[in-house]
Nucleic acid binder design. Structure first.
Lengths: 348, 348
DNA sequence: AGGGTTCGTTAAACCGGTTTATTGATTTTC
DNA sequence: GAAAATCAATAAACCGGTTTAACGAACCCT
C-alpha cells in the first residue's frame, strides 16, 4: 500500500502538505490540493487508519463490551445493538464488539489498552471487575444497567427502573387475584436481578403474602439457553408447588419455555396459568398462542441513549456522570388473567 | 496514560527491553522482566493498541460490513453475528461492525484504510461496489452470500445453495398439489434474490406451470420491516389472485406477516393457505400457530465458516479463494399441506 | 517604498510502540 | 586458555501519519 511519503514525492510537496489535504485541518491551495489528490488516486493511496489514530489519539470507534465468557447475543442484545449502531451511524463512529476471553486478556503478551474512544458495558454485575479496570484508564464508559453501589456515583449509566417496574407488574398480577408466583429471574450476579427481585418482593410483601407463596429462581448460567431454563424450572416448580398460578419470566424466550412446560403439564394458558414476561419483542410475542402479556423494555432506546451519552462524554464533558432512565410500557395481551381458584372453590 | 518510555525510565532499562517484556518476542531475563512488570504496574501502564498495530501492521480485529444505508440487524444477522463472534472469541480477535454511511466515507477528510486485518461482507449485491474497493487494497475479504459473476472467482465466500434449495422446496409444495404460488423474495438487487428466483422458476417450469400461475414479489426496500412487507403484499396479491394456495416467504418474520394477512382475509393456515419460510429460528417458528414449515439456513454456521475462512486467509494463504457451501435442512411442521381445490371441485 | 499581516508550504519533531544491528558479558568448545 | 558460540540488553531506525515552528512570498496600508 502506498504511504503518505509516496504521495508527497509523486506530487512534489512535503508530507505535511499531503496530510493537510486529507485531514482538511489547514488550508491548502486549490491547485496543490488537486495535484495531491490526483497523485493519491494514481497510487491508490488511503491514509493509514492506525497511524492516524496514533497521532490523533482518537479512533472514532466505540466499544461494546459483553462479559468475556458470554459470547452469544440474545434477542434483547440485538435490539440494543441496533440502537447503538444507529447512533454510531449518525455520527460516523464504528462499533467494536469487545468480547475477548479473560484468559486471553490476562496474558502479558496480549495486554493492551482498548482501541476505542469510549466503551459501553453490557449486563453489569455486582462488583463488576470491568468497571474498576476502565476507571483507572482514561476511556469514558457508559453502562447499560445499574452498576453495583460502589460505582453508582462514578459512572454514567442507562437503565430501566427495574425496581418500580417489577413492583408494578407484580401488583397487576396481584390485582388479578394471583396469590402464588414463580419468578424466573436473571442470573443472580447481575445487578438487574437484584432490582427485579426487590421490586417483586416489595409488592408481594405489601400484599401481605408469606414467603411460602412465591418462588424466585435465578438463571444459573448466562450461557445456557433461556428457553430451556424456562421450561425446566417451570416444570420442576409447578410439580413441587402446584398452587402456583402465575409465572413471571425474564425474557420472552424464557416465557416460551414456560408455555412449553404448561403444555407438558396439560395446563392451559391463561386459564390455569398466567404468564408474564419482560420483553422487547414487538414482532414475535404478539404471535404466541396466546399472545404474550409483558412489559417492553425498549432495548433499542437503551442502546441509543447509552451511545448518545457516551459520545457526549467523548466529545467534551468527560468526568460528569449522567443517569438516564428509559421508561417501560406494559403491554396487556392475553397470557394473564384471573386465576381459577381450584383450592377454595367458591368462585363462579 | 503512561508510555513505554516512562516504564523504561522507571525500571532503568531501554524501551526495547520493555517492549520485549510485553510482546514476549525475545527472551528477557527473569530479573529484568520482574522489574519492568513491577514498574508497569506501578505506573498503570498498558501498551498502546494503535501504536502496536502500526508497528505490527496488524490489529487483531476483523470487520463485519453491512451495506452502509442499512443499519438494522435482522434476526438472521443475529445468528450470523453469533457465529462470527464465536470464532473471534476462540482466536482472540475483536469484531468491528463497519456501517458507515457512504456520505461519510466519500468525504476526503474521512477517507482511510479500514482498521482491520480482514473483513466479512454481508448481503452482497449485484456489482457490489464494496468488493471492487476491497480488491484494490490488501485486506482479505470473505463474503456471506454469492458475489455477482464478475467477482465469482476473485473472492472467497460462504453461502447456502440457494438455487437448489429453492427448487427443492418448490418441488415439495408442487408435490403437495399446489399449482398457484406467491413467492416473497429478498430485495431484487441482492444476489440471493436471483438465486432463489432461479430455483423457484426452474421448479415451476419443470412442472409445466404457466407464468400466470405464480407471482414473485421482491422486497422493495431493505430498510422497511419484513413483517409489513409480508402482510401487505400477501393481502394485495391474494385479493388480485385468489387462486393462490401457497406462499413462500423470505424470512420467518415475513411469514408472520403472511399469517396476519391470512387472518385478515379469513383464510385458515394451512387449510386454505400454505406458508413456507426461509428461516433460521429454532426458538420462535415452532411456536407459531400453526408451527411454521420452512428451511433452516444455519446462519450461525454461515458466520462461523466465514470467520474461519477469513482467519485462514489472514494467517497465511492469502490470494487463494475458497467457497464453502453450508447445507440447509427442511423442517416440516404444520403450515403446509395439500391445497383444498375450490376450483375443480372433484376432491374428497 | 517600507513595515506589518496574511497565507501557503516545509522541515523536523512527535505520537508510542517494534525491530535490526551492535555490543558486551557469559558460557561452551577443543 | 584462547576462540567460538550463546545470551541479554541497548541505541537507533522504523511504522505512517499529525503538528509545531519557521519561512518566504504575496497582500495591505499609509
Amino acid at each position: 500500500m502506498a504511504t503518505i511519503d509516496d504521495v508527497a514525492k509523486a506530487s512534489g510537496v512535503s508530507k505535511g502538505t499531503v496530510s493537510s489535504v486529507f485531514s482538511k485541518k489547514r488550508p491548502i491551495s486549490k491547485e496543490v490540493t488537486e495535484r495531491v489528490l490526483a497523485a493519491a488516486k494514481e497510487l491508490n493511496y488511503k491514509p493509514n487508519y492506525w497511524a492516524r489514530s496514533l497521532a490523533n489519539k482518537s479512533t472514532r470507534i466505540i466499544g461494546l463490551n459483553i462479559r468475556a465468557d458470554k459470547v452469544k447475543f440474545s434477542q434483547f442484545h440485538l435490539s440494543l445493538l441496533n440502537g447503538v449502531l444507529g447512533v454510531c451511524y449518525a455520527h460516523g463512529y464504528r462499533l467494536l464488539v469487545n468480547a475477548l476471553p479473560s484468559s486471553f486478556q490476562n496474558r502479558v503478551e496480549h495486554m493492551a489498552t482498548d482501541p476505542v474512544d469510549g466503551e459501553i458495558l453490557l449486563d453489569p454485575e455486582n462488583r463488576d471487575p470491568r468497571i474498576a479496570e476502565r476507571l483507572s484508564g482514561d476511556v469514558p464508559i457508559v453502562l447499560i444497567g445499574r452498576p453495583s453501589p460502589e460505582y453508582e456515583n462514578r459512572v454514567s449509566y442507562v437503565d430501566n427502573d427495574n425496581v418500580e417496574m417489577t413492583q408494578q407488574i407484580t401488583r397487576y398480577l396481584l390485582g388479578l387475584g394471583h396469590r402464588s408466583f414463580l419468578f424466573l429471574n436473571a442470573p443472580k450476579f447481575r445487578t438487574v436481578a437484584d432490582d427485579r427481585a426487590r421490586g417483586f418482593l416489595a409488592a408481594v410483601r405489601e400484599a401481605g403474602l408469606p414467603p411460602s407463596s412465591y418462588q424466585v429462581a435465578y438463571k444459573p448460567d448466562p450461557d445456557n439457553p433461556s428457553f430451556d431454563f424456562g421450561y425446566e424450572t417451570t416444570l420442576g416448580m409447578l410439580r413441587s408447588h402446584p398452587g402456583i398460578t402465575a409465572v413471571i419470566a425474564d425474557t420472552d424466550t424464557m416465557a416460551l419455555g414456560v408455555y412449553k412446560a404448561a403444555e407438558t403439564l396439560g395446563l392451559s394458558i391463561p386459564g390455569q396459568l398466567s404468564v408474564f414476561a419482560f420483553s422487547d419483542d414487538s414482532v414475535f410475542s404478539p404471535e404466541f398462542t396466546p399472545p404474550l402479556t409483558g412489559v417492553r423494555l425498549h432495548a433499542e432506546r437503551l442502546g441509543r441513549e447509552a451511545a448518545t451519552l457516551l459520545l457526549e462524554q467523548i466529545n467534551g464533558a468527560a468526568g460528569t456522570f449522567k443517569r438516564t432512565i428509559v421508561p417501560t410500557d406494559m403491554v396487556i395481551r392475553s397470557s394473564c388473567t384471573e386465576p381459577k381458584l381450584n383450592l377454595g372453590g367458591n368462585v363462579s
